[in-house]
Write a protein that binds this DNA or RNA. Structure first.
Length: 981
RNA sequence: GCCCGGGUGGCGGAAUUGGUAGACGCAGCAGACUCAAAAUCUGCCGUUCGCAAGGAUGUGAAGGUUCGAUUCCUUUCCCGGGCACCA
C-alpha cells in the first residue's frame, strides 16, 4: 500500500467539505483565537509560490490552536478594488467586476488545492456592494466626527456644533481654527459654517498635489511615473493641485505612537512606524525678512533652537508661498527656472537626489539675536508639507546643510569649537556653545530650553511638537473603488441621503473625466445627482476587513458588538513588511475611531504581528546568438541573417568572455571571431560574418527563459523548443558534457520575468502536504529568499518514510503482509523519549513560528523511530496529531487507518512529560582556551570541584597542559567546560 | 538620500539566554540491493596540511570587549523592503 497522496488528498478535501469541517461558529463558550492573513489583491496572474508562505504558516498555527482547544477564526477574502483591474479594463474594455470575479475564482481554487482550513462562508470581498456598504458607512462616521483635542478622542461633530453655539471657536481647542465667538457662529451663513466644520471633520476635503499627465488626461500613481514621465507612453508628468479627501490621521499621531507599547510587533516594525509618525519637539521661530516686500516674516521649524547662532542660511521649499514675494529682481529668472525644474520632479526623486541643487532668492532673513543677515535659498530637499516648509540651516551640525554650504560656497560659522573639524558636520548635543551670544558657555543639551524660553519671551516663536506624518490622502480620480456617499451643492459637501450602499454605476468607458476628474464624472445621471466623482483608495476596504469576518452576514451592522467583543483583537496577523506604514497605520487609526465612537471595545486591531518575507524569483537566462547589422539603429529592424535561432550554453561564453556584466548585447570583434568559430563547430552552415559585409556582426542577447523548463541550471531543450513557435528549430551549442547551462539571477517574482512557479503544478506533482511542508522548510517565515524548487524531493521522501512507519508498502511481499503494521505493544523508554522530545520540539517551534526547524524536527523523529524499528500505536498515534497542522491530509488518512472514527482535526494536542526525557548526565565539550578539544560525560549534579578533578585526569587535557597547572577552569552547568592555560 | 531588515559549506538553512559552528534537507561522491531501472538502504561530504593520529583556518570585511563571539560594541561593503496614488 503506497503513499498515494493524490487520492488521499482528494478524498479528505471532499470529506471536509461535505462535513463542513472548517465551519467556524460564534460559539462564545469556548476560548477564541483569531488568526488572520493580510488578504490578497486578486491579480490576473494568479497565485504564485510566494503568496502561500504566510498562509501556510497561519494555517498551521490555526490548526495547532484548534488542537489546543480554541475556537479559531481563520478567514480569507479579497482586497478586490484596485488599479490593475482598472488598467486592464482600460486596455481591454472588460468590466473590472468581471475580471475580478474570474481572478478570485482562480485564487480560490488555487488556495483550496493547498488544503487551507478556511471557512469560506465568512469570505469578504471589498468590491462587493454588501461589503462596501459598510466601508461607506464608516466613512460617514469619519465625516461626521471631529477630534476633540482635550479628550484626545473622536466625537460626533453634532456635539461640536452645539459647543460652537455656546463657546464659539474655543470649543475646538485648535490653534488652526480662526477665532470666532458663539454669536458670530450663529451669524455665519451655511457655507461659512460648512467650511469651518470641514476643517474639523476626521474625513475632510482639502487640496493636494497629484502626478498629472496632460497627454493621458489623468492622474498617475507614483509607480506609474518613471523618471518624470508616464510609464505608459512616456508622456511628461507635472504636479497639479486637485481637491482631495483626506483622513485626519495626524490627530491620532500620539495615540498611534503610544499604542505601539500595547502590541506585540517586532521592534523593527515599531521603529518603522514611529519613524513614519516622526514625532519631534522643538520650536517654530519667526525671522524678519529683508526683501523688496517689507514686513514679511519667515517661519521655520527646528528641533535644535540651541544652534540659532550657527544659522548660515535658510532653505525654503520651492512651493513655499513666500518664494514669489521675496525673490529679488536679479534672481527672479533663476528662481523661476529652478521652480520649473522642480515641478517635473517627483517627491521620491527629490528626496533621493544626491546631487545638490538650489537657487538663491536674493532675500535675507535677520537673525533676531545677532542681527546677522542670512541668505534665503530655495532647494528641492525641503518639502512644503514638512514642518513649515522652511528650515534654518546650521552647517556645522547637519551634514546635508554642510554639503549645501560647501557646494554654494556659503561661509560656515562654527559654534561648537573643536567638535567641528570643518570637514564633517557634528550633530552632537554635548558640546559647549561658542559664538552664540547669550548661549555661550552652555551645554547644547541645556541651551535648548534656554533658547526656547527666550524666543517665547520675545514673542518671536513658540515651543512646538511636530509630526512628520501627514494627513492621509483619501481620494482617487479612478473608477474601480468605493463611491463616496457625498453630494456637493454650492461648494458644500453633504452626506448622501439615500440608503447605503451607494452602488458604483457602470460606465461606458474607463477613461478619465473632464478636468482631472475620475471616470464617474462622465456619467450624466451621476453628475446630475451632484454626487462626488472621486472614489476611495485601495486601503479603504482593507482598513476594517478584519471586523467584517467576525460577522460577515450581518445586514444591520458592520459587525455586531457581541461578535466583536468575542473575537476581539486579531491574535495573530501575518503579512509582509511592505505594509508597515500604509495599511497597518490606517487600520490602526480606523480601529481607534470606531472605538472612540463606541462601536467596538478595543482600540488596537492586531495584538501580535508576524512579518513574512518575500519569496523572490530565481530567473533563468539563455544566450541567443544572431547575425545582424552592426549599426544600432538599423539593428532594431534588422532581421536575423541566419534563419535558425542559435543558443549558446553559458559556460562556453564565460570561457571566452570571462564573467562579465551583461549590460550590453554587443561584444568586441575579436571575441566575436572566437565565438563564431565555436558556433561553426556545431552549425556548419552558419553564415560567414565577413562575407556578409563589414556592417554585419554577431550579437549575443541574454533572454529570460521559463524557470519551469530548467532543472537547476540545465535547460530542457526539448521543452524549450516547444515553448514558442520561433524556438521550434532552435539549435543549441552545448557544453562538452552535452548540457545547456542557463544563467541565474534573483529578481522579483513576476510573469514578465518567466520566473513564477505555480503552486498548482507542485501540488499536482508532490501533493499539498509536501508543498506545505516544503514552503515551511525553506527557512524562517520572516526571511526573504529566492524560490528554488530543488529540494522539494527531500520533503516528499520524508513523508514517504513517515508513511512507512505505519504502512508496509513493500510490493515484493504478498498482499496480506502489506498494509498497516502498527502494533499495540508497550513502548520502550527510548521510544517514549523520542516521542516526548518531538512533542516539546514541535510545540515550541510552532509557538515561536519557527516552522522550518519544526519540519526538521519531524524528519529527525521519523529517522529515529525508523532506526528503532518502532511501529507502536502509543508512539505513532500522538505523532499524527503533531503532524496534523503541517500535513493535514496524510495525518487524517493514517489516523483513520488506525481505526479512529473521530477527526484528527479535533484531537487533543499531546502533553509533553519531562520524566521521559530526563537525563542524569551530559557529554560536556571541554575547551582549552575556548577551543573545543574533547568531550567528557559528567553527572548533571556534579560540583565545580568534582568537575575540575575529572577534567585534570583527562588525557587530552593533560597533553595541552604540558604538566603546568591551569590558570582557571570555567564550568557552566549544562553548557560547557573551558580550561584556561 | 533617509528609515528598517539581511549576509554562515556547492545550495536552502540550524545553533531559542555569549558556551561543541554547519542540525535537518538538497546537490555531489563511494557502495549495497537489482538482469536493468526506479524506489530504498549504508558510508563520506566547509577549506587546508597530514598515510594517520592530529593540527591550522573558518559565520560579508576590518577592529574591539570576553576565559569564550555567528550572537555584544565601533567602522565599512554588498543585497532586499519602504519612503505617503501598486497592493
Amino acid at each position: 500500500m503506497e503513499y498515494d497522496f493524490r487520492k488521499i488528498e482528494k478524498d479528505w478535501q471532499k470529506k471536509w467539505k461535505e462535513s463542513n469541517a472548517y465551519k467556524v461558529n460564534n460559539d462564545f463558550s469556548k476560548p477564541k483565537s483569531y488568526v488572520l492573513d493580510m488578504f490578497p489583491y486578486p491579480s490576473g496572474a494568479g497565485l504564485h509560490v510566494g503568496h502561500p508562505l504566510g498562509y501556510i504558516a497561519s494555517d498551521i498555527y490555526s490548526r495547532y490552536k484548534r488542537l489546543k482547544g480554541f475556537n479559531v477564526l481563520h478567514p480569507m477574502g479579497f482586497d478586490s478594488f484596485g488599479l490593475p483591474a482598472e488598467q486592464y479594463a482600460l486596455d481591454t474594455g472588460q468590466h473590472p467586476a468581471e475580471t475580478t470575479k474570474k481572478n478570485i475564482a482562480t485564487f480560490k481554487s488555487q488556495l483550496d488545492n493547498i488544503g487551507f482550513c478556511y471557512d469560506w462562508e465568512r469570505e469578504v470581498q471589498t468590491s462587493d456592494p454588501q461589503y462596501y456598504k459598510w466601508t461607506q458607512w464608516i466613512f460617514l462616521q469619519l465625516f461626521n466626527s471631529y477630534f476633540d483635542k482635550k479628550e484626545n478622542k473622536a466625537k460626533p461633530i453634532a456635539e461640536l456644533i452645539k459647543s460652537f453655539e455656546t463657546e464659539g471657536s474655543l470649543a475646538a481647542h485648535s490653534s488652526q481654527l480662526t477665532a470666532f465667538s458663539a454669536d458670530e457662529w450663529k451669524q455665519f451663513d451655511e457655507k461659512q459654517k460648512a467650511d469651518i466644520l470641514m476643517n474639523c471633520r476626521l474625513a475632510f476635503c482639502g487640496y493636494g498635489e497629484v502626478n498629472w499627465c496632460e497627454a493621458l488626461g489623468t492622474v498617475l500613481a507614483n509607480d506609474e511615473v518613471v523618471n518624470g514621465v508616464s510609464e505608459r507612453g512616456g508622456h511628461p508628468v507635472v504636479k497639479k493641485t486637485l481637491r482631495q479627501w483626506y483622513l485626519r490621521i495626524t490627530d491620532y499621531a500620539d495615540r498611534l505612537l503610544e499604542g505601539l507599547n500595547t502590541v506585540d510587533f517586532s521592534d523593527a516594525m515599531k521603529e518603522m512606524q514611529s519613524n513614519w509618525i516622526g514625532k519631534s519637539s522643538g520650536a517654530e521661530i519667526e525671522f524678519g525678512v529683508k526683501s523688496q516686500e517689507s514686513g514679511a516674516k519667515l517661519r521655520v521649524y527646528t528641533t535644535r533652537p540651541d544652534t540659532i547662532f550657527g544659522v548660515d542660511f535658510m532653505v525654503i521649499a520651492p512651493e513655499h508661498e513666500m518664494v514669489e514675494k521675496i525673490a529679488s529682481a536679479e534672481q527672479k529668472a533663476a528662481v523661476e527656472e529652478y521652480i520649473t525644474y522642480v515641478k517635473s520632479r517627483s517627491e521620491r526623486e527629490r528626496m533621493a537626489e544626491k546631487k545638490i541643487s538650489g537657487v538663491f532668492t536674493g532675500a535675507y532673513a535677520i537673525n533676531p539675536f545677532s542681527g546677522r543677515e542670512i541668505p534665503i535659498w530655495i532647494s528641492e530637499y525641503v518639502l512644503a508639507g514638512y514642518g513649515t516648509g522652511a528650515i534654518m540651516a546650521v552647517p556645522c551640525g547637519d551634514e546635508r546643510d554642510l554639503k549645501f554650504a560647501k557646494h554654494f560656497n556659503i561661509p560656515v560659522t562654527n559654534i561648537i569649537g573643536t567638535h567641528f573639524n570643518g570637514e564633517e558636520a557634528n550633530p552632537t548635543k554635548d558640546a559647549i556653545l561658542e559664538n552664540s551670544g547669550f548661549l555661550d558657555g552652555l551645554l547644547m543639551r541645556d541651551a535648548m530650553e534656554v533658547a526656547i524660553n527666550k524666543i517665547e519671551e520675545l514673542g518671536i516663536g513658540k515651543r512646538k511638537v511636530n509630526f512628520k506624518m501627514r494627513d492621509a490622502a483619501f481620494s482617487r480620480q479612478r473608477y474601480w473603488g468605493e463611491p463616496f456617499p457625498i453630494t456637493w451643492k454650492d461648494g458644500i459637501a453633504k452626506e448622501w441621503k439615500g440608503d447605503l450602499p451607494l452602488v458604483l454605476p457602470d460606465v461606458e468607458k474607463y477613461g478619465p473625466g473632464p478636468d482631472g476628474q475620475g471616470p464617474l464624472a462622465n456619467i450624466p445621471e451621476w453628475v446630475a445627482q451632484e454626487l462626488e466623482t472621486n472614489t476611495m483608495p485601495g486601503y479603504a476596504g482593507s482598513s476594517w476587513y478584519f471586523l467584517r469576518y467576525m460577522d460577515n452576514k450581518n445586514e444591520k451592522e458592520f459587525c455586531s458588538r457581541a461578535a466583536s467583543d468575542y473575537w476581539n483583537q486579531v491574535d495573530l496577523y501575518i503579512g509582509g513588511t511592505e505594509h508597515a506604514v500604509g495599511h497597518l497605520l490606517y487600520s490602526r487609526m480606523w480601529t481607534k475611531v470606531l472605538y472612540d465612537l463606541g462601536h467596538i471595545g478595543f482600540d488596537e486591531p492586531f495584538k501580535r504581528l508576524v512579518n513574512q518575507g518575500m519569496i523572490q524569483g530565481s530567473s533563468r537566462f539563455v544566450y541567443r546568438a544572431q547575425v545582424k547589422s552592426a549599426i544600432p539603429l538599423a539593428r532594431e529592424k534588422d532581421e536575423n541573417k541566419y534563419d535558425k535561432q542559435i543558443f549558446i550554453s553559458k559556460n562556453i561564453l564565460i570561457n571566452v568572455l570571462g564573467d562579465i556584466e551583461w549590460d550590453t548585447d554587443i561584444i568586441d570583434s575579436q571575441k566575436q571571431e572566437e565565438i563564431y568559430a565555436i558556433i561553426k563547430e556545431t552549425v556548419s552552415d552558419f553564415p560567414n560574418l565577413k562575407s556578409e559585409g563589414p556592417l554585419t556582426a554577431l550579437f549575443i542577447q541574454k533572454i529570460h527563459v521559463d524557470v519551469n523548463i530548467v532543472d537547476g541550471v540545465d535547460l530542457d531543450t526539448i521543452a524549450f523548443k516547444k515553448s514558442r513557435p520561433e524556438y521550434a528549430n532552435a539549435i543549441f551549442v552545448l557544453d562538452k558534457d552535452g548540457k545547456y547551462i542557463c544563467d541565474v539571477e534573483v529578481e522579483k517574482m513576476s510573469k514578465s520575468k518567466f520566473n513564477t512557479v505555480n503552486p498548482d503544478d507542485l501540488v499536482a506533482k508532490y501533493g499539498a502536504d509536501t508543498f506545505r511542508m516544503y514552503e515551511m522548510f525553506l527557512g524562517p517565515v520572516e526571511m526573504s529568499k529566492p524560490w528554488d524548487t530543488k529540494g522539494i524531493e527531500g520533503v516528499h521522501r520524508f513523508l514517504k518514510k513517515f508513511w512507512r512507519l505505519y504502512i508496509n508498502d513493500d510490493k515484493s511481499l504478498p498482499a496480506g503482509r502489506q498494509g498497516l503494521i502498527v502494533k499495540d505493544d508497550e513502548p520502550t523508554p527510548a521510544e517514549l523519549k523520542v516521542l516526548h522530545n518531538a512533542i516539546r520540539k514541535i510545540e515550541q517551534d510552532t509557538e515561536r513560528f519557527s516552522f522550518n526547524t519544526g519540519v526538521s524536527g519531524f524528519m529527525i523523529v521519523t529517522n529515529e523511530l525508523t532506526d528503532l524499528k518502532c511501529h507502536k500505536r502509543k508512539i505513532l498515534e500522538p505523532l499524527l496529531i503533531l503532524l496534523a497542522p503541517y500535513a493535514p491530509h496524510i495525518a487524517a488518512e493514517l489516523w483513520s487507518l488506525l481505526g479512529n472514527t473521530t477527526a484528527v482535526l479535533d484531537a487533543a494536542f499531546p502533553t509533553f512529560e519531562e520524566k521521559y526525557v530526563k537525563e542524569s548526565s551530559k557529554a560536556y565539550p571541554v575547551a582549552i582556551n575556548g577551543k573545543t578539544r574533547t568531550e567528557l560525560t559528567i553527572a548533571l549534579d556534579a560540583t565545580q570541584q568534582q568537575v575540575e578533578e575529572l577534567v585534570l585526569t583527562d588525557e587530552v587535557v593533560k597533553k595541552w597542559l604540558e604538566g603546568k597547572p591551569p590558570k582557571k577552569i570555567i564550568y557552566v552547568k549544562n553548557k560547557m567546560i573551558n580550561v584556561v592555560i
